[in-house]
Structures are given as C-alpha cells and as structure tokens.
Simulated scan of single mutants.
Amino acid sequence: MTIPKINEKQKRRDRYSWIIWGIIIIVIYGWCFSDMKFSHIQESAGMVSKSIFMGLIHPDWAYIYNGSGEDLVSQLIMTLAIAFLGTIIAAIISVPFAFFASRSKNSKYNVTSKVGTFLLTAIRAFPEIVLAIMFIKAVGPGSFAGVMALGIHSIGMLGKLFSESIEEMNHSSEYSIVAAGGSKPQVFALSTWPTILPALISYTLYSFEISVRSASILGLVGAGGIGAPMIMALNTRNWPRVGIILFGIVVMVMVIDGCSGYIRKKLV
C-alpha cells in the first residue's frame, strides 16, 4: 500500500496561509485605528492610572474587619444574605410557574404553557439593576430592595430551567403508580417531585452563584451589600479600599463557585 504524496503547492499554501491571514487582520485593525483620535486623553491619565494600579496592588488590609459593621467581612456577609434570600424567594415562587409553563405531551395546543412561558420571559426581561432602582423608589434604599430585585429577576430564570426539567423528566414511574391505582397527589409525592428535585436543587445553586455576583453590583445603586462601600471608595478615589473590596469579592465568588460545584456533582 503506497501513501499518496501531498502536493507541494498545497503544502506551501497551508504553511503560509496563517501568515497571509495575520497580515490581513493587522491591516484591518490598522485601518480601524487610523481614524481614531486620541486628543481627548487627559495629561494626568498616566498619573491616575499609576495611582489606581498602586492602590490595587497595595490594598487596605485594615478594612477587612474592624468591628464597626461597615468593614469588608460584614458587607460580604450582607451580600451573601441578600443573594441567599433572593434565591430562596425565587426558588419557592418559580416552582408553580414552572409547572404552569411546562408543556404537556398529551396536550395539543399547550395554551397554558405559552402563557406561563410569556410571563417568565417578561419577568426575565427586566435587569436586576433596573428592578433594584424601582424597588429603591418604592421601599427605600437598603438590603430589602436588593432582595426583592434579585428574587423577582431570578423567578424568570429558575422558572424557565425548572419547566425544562419537568418536560424532560422520565414519566415511566408516574405511569406505574397510576396503573397501580395511585391518585394524583400520590403520583406527585412519590414520583414527580423526587424525580425533578435534584435538578431543582442544582439550578437553585447555580442561580445562587449568579445572585452573589449580582448582589455585589446592586449596592452601587443603593440596594445594600458590598457595592455601597465600593462606590464610595471609587468616588473618593480610595484605590487601596477598592483593591481590598475587589479582592474580597473575588475570594467570595471563588468559594461559592467551588462549594456549589461540589454539591452539584454529588447530586448528579
């Protein structure tokens, strides 16, 4: 059996094609940047950038905990509490929405599922920060506005994920209970709920991860949490304080991601 020889022209073309594409990309980027004007950059931009960088690499370690209730640890705990309560509220309320929006295989038109899907989409369309501003105007600034904003927004996401889990579940155990003479409450308690519960817990943990990140931002508009001291530090150009706050947020998010990922693996 002889191995066919590769055409020399083809080999040369493959060898230098990436160089040609690189030149084309450089020319395109050069053409795009050639029309940009950098005259609006302030003369103090270099000094400000240096002070930001030096502040971030020399964080204010004394702010981690000072017992005042306004320190980093206290604000991170408040942020976690806001995310946790918002996720719990969304998980509880989204369950009936999920059953309402899930499509039944025995139904031909699925009118109720379309209505439920529309409601979940409408709820999900409002960003958390917009909901936070609305609740701040309604109930005043603070943690309660952040909890309500995260809770309402997460209903749309969790309801959609829960409804998909209900649609994809295996109904064989339900048919067995019905064939044995079981009632609808028995079917739900013995088959439906135990089948979808691991997926519900997994999606709730995933939503909690997202809520932790969102709760860190909602404080920027006055909805409580670590965002409030961060915006104050940014406004006063206290870059060491900004550095330690960012460090705390990164550590908190990494710990939450690791714990929730471990729990989800155990559920699968």
Rank of each mutant, 00 (worst) to 15 (best):
45 A>Q: 02
48 V>S: 00
50 K>F: 02
53 F>A: 09
55 G>H: 00
56 L>V: 11
56 L>Q: 07
57 I>K: 08
58 H>S: 14
59 P>H: 08
60 D>I: 09
62 A>E: 15
63 Y>I: 12
64 I>K: 01
65 Y>E: 08
66 N>S: 13
68 S>I: 14
73 V>E: 01
75 Q>I: 12
75 Q>K: 08
77 I>K: 02
78 M>K: 14
78 M>R: 06
79 T>V: 06
79 T>S: 06
80 L>W: 00
82 I>E: 11
82 I>Y: 03
82 I>W: 02
84 F>L: 15
86 G>C: 11
86 G>M: 07
86 G>H: 09
87 T>V: 05
88 I>W: 10
89 I>T: 14
89 I>Q: 11
90 A>Y: 03
90 A>T: 10
90 A>D: 10
91 A>D: 10
93 I>H: 01
94 S>E: 01
95 V>P: 05
96 P>F: 01
98 A>S: 13
98 A>V: 00
99 F>Q: 01
100 F>Q: 00
100 F>L: 14
100 F>T: 02
101 A>L: 05
101 A>E: 05
101 A>Q: 01
103 R>S: 03
105 K>R: 13
106 N>K: 12
106 N>R: 03
108 K>Y: 05
109 Y>V: 15
112 T>M: 09
113 S>W: 00
113 S>M: 05
114 K>T: 13
114 K>W: 05
115 V>M: 08
115 V>G: 01
117 T>M: 12
117 T>S: 13
118 F>M: 15
118 F>T: 15
119 L>A: 14
121 T>A: 13
122 A>N: 09
125 A>Y: 06
126 F>P: 13
126 F>N: 09
126 F>V: 15
126 F>M: 15
129 I>C: 04
129 I>T: 14
134 M>L: 15
134 M>I: 15
134 M>H: 01
135 F>W: 08
135 F>E: 11
136 I>Q: 08
137 K>M: 14
138 A>I: 15
140 G>R: 03
145 A>D: 08
147 V>Q: 06
147 V>T: 09
147 V>S: 05
150 L>H: 04
150 L>V: 11
150 L>E: 06
150 L>R: 10
151 G>D: 05
151 G>E: 07
152 I>S: 04
152 I>Y: 03
